[in-house]
C-alpha cells in the first residue's frame, strides 16, 4: 500500500506538470481543463470541511458557489455596462479587480452560510440534508426570476476580470492564480484539521455529547465550520464564473451540490487531498467519457455506485488501503 503523503505529493506534482506540459505541446484547452479541476477542487475542499470533518451532509453548497459566481457577475456586469458608456474602454479597474470580487464573494457566502447554518443546524440527519437542499432551490428560483441580472439566461462577462500584475486572459496565468489559491486553501485546511478547533469539530461529529460535557458547544463548532466551508466554496464560485466568463442560475442548481459531494466521495471523505483527486478524476471522466459517448453520466453513475457500495474510502482509500472518516 502507498503512504498517503506520497499520493498527495504525486497529485500535487501532477497538477503542476500537466499544464506545463500543455504549454510545451501548445494545447491551451488542456490548461483550461486543469484550471476547471483546480477550481472545483477548491469548492470541494470547502465542502469537505463541513462534510468530512464536521459531518454536515450539506446538499445545498451550490448556494455559496452560486453566490460567489453572482458576486463576480454583478460587479463585473456593472463595470461592463458602465464602461460601455465610457469611450476609453475598460478603465474601471475598481470592480473588474479580482481581489475585490473575491473579498465580496467570500463575505457574501460567509454571511449566507451563517444565516443558513443558524436555521439548518437546529435540525440534524435527514432533515439537515433536506433543508440545505431546499435553501439551494430557494436561491435557484430566486436567481431565475430576478430578471435584472439576466434571469434564467444568466449574465455574460466579456472580458475576464484582472489581477494586478497578471494577464488573466492567458490560460496559464489564470491557472497559476487558481493553483496558488488552492494551495492556500489546502494549507488552511491542514492547519485547521490539526488545530484545537479542528480536533474539537472532529469530536463533535463523532460524539457530540462528550464534546458538550467538556464544556464546548458542538452547535457553535459546526456553525463556524459551516461558515468557513461556505466562504471557501464562494471563492471557488467567483473563480468558476471568471473561468467561464458566464454566470447563470445553474450555479445554484442542486445537481451542482450533488456533484460537489460526489467529488469528495470519489477522492475520499475527510482527507486533505480527497477533493483534489476527486475533482481531477471528475473533470477527466467528463472530458474523456464525454468524448466517447453522449451518455457519460450512466458510467459516472455506475462508478459512483461501485465506490459507495464497495470502496468506502474513495480513490485515496483504495491506494492507501485505509478507510476514510465515517460521516
Amino acid at each position: 500500500m502507498i503512504p498517503e503523503r506520497l499520493v498527495n505529493w504525486v497529485v500535487f506534482a501532477g497538477l503542476l506538470a500537466v499544464p506545463l506540459w500543455a504549454i510545451v505541446v501548445d494545447e491551451p484547452f488542456t490548461i483550461t481543463l486543469v484550471t476547471r479541476a483546480v477550481i472545483l477542487a477548491i469548492a470541494a475542499v470547502g465542502l469537505n470541511i463541513a462534510l468530512g470533518i464536521g459531518g454536515l451532509v450539506s446538499l445545498g453548497h451550490a448556494v455559496f458557489f452560486g453566490l460567489g459566481g453572482y458576486a463576480m457577475g454583478i460587479l463585473a456586469y456593472h463595470a461592463q455596462t458602465y464602461t460601455s458608456l465610457d469611450l476609453f474602454g475598460m478603465s474601471l479597474a475598481g470592480t473588474k479587480s479580482m481581489p475585490i470580487i473575491w473579498l465580496v464573494a467570500v463575505v457574501m457566502s460567509a454571511l449566507a452560510a451563517w444565516i443558513i447554518g443558524l436555521l439548518s443546524l437546529r435540525t440534524s440527519g435527514v432533515y439537515f440534508i433536506m433543508i440545505t437542499l431546499a435553501f439551494g432551490q430557494m436561491f435557484y428560483y430566486f436567481a431565475i426570476s430576478w430578471s435584472t441580472y439576466g434571469g434564467e439566461d444568466g449574465l455574460s462577462i466579456y472580458v475576464r476580470n484582472g489581477f494586478p500584475g497578471l494577464n488573466t486572459l492567458v490560460p496559464i496565468q489564470f491557472f497559476g492564480l487558481c493553483f496558488v489559491l488552492l494551495c492556500i486553501v489546502l494549507f488552511l485546511n491542514a492547519r485547521l484539521q490539526n488545530a484545537p478547533f479542528g480536533l474539537a469539530l472532529n469530536a463533535a461529529r463523532q460524539v457530540p455529547t462528550r464534546v458538550e460535557t467538556v464544556g464546548l458547544n458542538p452547535m457553535r463548532l459546526k456553525l463556524v465550520a459551516f461558515v468557513i466551508s461556505g466562504a471557501i466554496t464562494g471563492l471557488a464560485g467567483a473563480l468558476f464564473a471568471d473561468l467561464n466568463r458566464f454566470v447563470s442560475p445553474t450555479m445554484f442548481s442542486w445537481q451542482l451540490s450533488g456533484e460537489l459531494i460526489v467529488l469528495i466521495i470519489i477522492g475520499g471523505v475527510g482527507r486533505l487531498y480527497g477533493p483534489v483527486v476527486g475533482a481531477c478524476l471528475f473533470v477527466a471522466l467528463e472530458h474523456w467519457l464525454g468524448a466517447l459517448t453522449e451518455f457519460w453520466h450512466i458510467y459516472l453513475g455506475l462508478i459512483l455506485l461501485a465506490i459507495v457500495l464497495f470502496a468506502r474510502g474513495g480513490i485515496i482509500g483504495l491506494l492507501t488501503g485505509k478507510e476514510g472518516a465515517h460521516v
Binding site: H297, I298, G301, L304, R312
Partner: peptide, 20 residues
C-alpha cells in the same frame, strides 16, 4: 448505512436512469 451513502447511491441511480 449512513445517510451520506444513501444520498450518493440514489444520486448515482438518478444519473443512470436519466441518461438511460
Amino acid at each position: 448505512k449512513a445517510h451520506l451513502d444513501q444520498v450518493l447511491a440514489t444520486f448515482a441511480l438518478i444519473l443512470i436512469f436519466s441518461e438511460g
